[in-house]
Amino acid sequence: MTNTLLLDVDGTLVDTNYHHAVAWVRAFGSAGIAVPAWKVHRSIGMGGDRLVEAVAGEHVEAEHGDELRKAWEHEFEPMLREIRPLEGAHRLVTSAVSEHGLHVVLASSGKREHVEHYLDLLDVRDAVTAFTTSEDAEDSKPAPDLLQVALSHVDTERAVVIGDSVWDCEAAKRIGLPVVALRTGGFGEAELREHGASAVYEGLDNLRADLADLPFATV
């Protein structure tokens, strides 16, 4: 029986959530829109198509959405050289494949060039079966579209979602897949469980030790 890990990337494999939050705060500021950083951070994990409205309201999305997304990209791009893998990321992916015979699909809503950069940074190109980017679905998390696209790239019988945010949990729940969460995105254990996580781990090495016992479900 073939099992698949549907792995989120930002905040799960690479330590980017706070960089994203800073870039968004600066982007809003460049348009003269003051938003609290904590509120931005709480929305990281959504795609940029949803975040503006979630943080600043429908009227800001209507008037400034595309402008803000371009400003975010301008602010985030120089930070790419600061991004580092989270501890244990390479070990998790390679162990899942070589020791447990799992497929690994990266279910990301990041820009293609960013995901490509992370693949090289993590040194997992040879281990990953497929990956998604923002180009692959019109609606981002918490919508389940990207997870469904990710599943379409692999011949599998069972799968589990691994993520770091409540938005990953919500997306998995909407298509009936189990989700295991990590605290690496800054969300607390209680709220991750409240949104559907069956288990919550402090780090990737802790998760790797339990790969054989993850709650895979039929897709």
Rank of each mutant, 00 (worst) to 15 (best):
L122G: 02
T133D: 04
D120W: 09
S152R: 10
P142G: 05
G110E: 03
Y118L: 05
F131T: 01
L147I: 07
T156R: 00
R112W: 10
L147W: 01
D120K: 12
T132I: 08
D123T: 03
D145S: 07
E157S: 13
V160W: 00
E135A: 15
D139T: 14
R112Y: 11
H103G: 11
F131V: 06
A107P: 04
S109V: 13
D126G: 08
P142M: 09
A130V: 06
E113V: 15
T129K: 10
H153L: 11
L106N: 03
S134M: 13
V104S: 01
D120M: 07
L146S: 10
S108R: 07
A143Q: 15
V128L: 02
L106E: 05
A159S: 09
H103E: 09
L151S: 01
V115K: 02
L147P: 08
H117Y: 14
H114P: 13
H117Q: 12
T133C: 05
V128M: 00
V115D: 06
L121I: 02
K141V: 10
V128Y: 04
S134A: 14
R125Q: 04
D126M: 01
A137T: 06
A143L: 13
L146N: 12
S140R: 09
A159G: 03
T132M: 05
L119G: 04
F131R: 07
E116Q: 09
V160I: 10
H117E: 14
Q148F: 12
G110Q: 12
E157F: 11
A150S: 09
R112S: 14
G110Y: 02
L151G: 01
A107V: 04
L146R: 04
T132Y: 01
E135L: 15
H153V: 11
H117G: 10
S152N: 10
D136H: 09
V104M: 03
D155F: 08
A127M: 04
L122R: 01
E135T: 12
D139L: 15
V154G: 00
P144A: 11
D123F: 01
V154W: 00
T129E: 09
Q148N: 15
V128P: 03
E116C: 10
D155Y: 08
R125W: 04
A143N: 12
D136I: 11
A150W: 06
K111W: 15
T132G: 08
L151V: 02
V115F: 00
D120F: 06
D139H: 15
V104Q: 10
L146G: 13
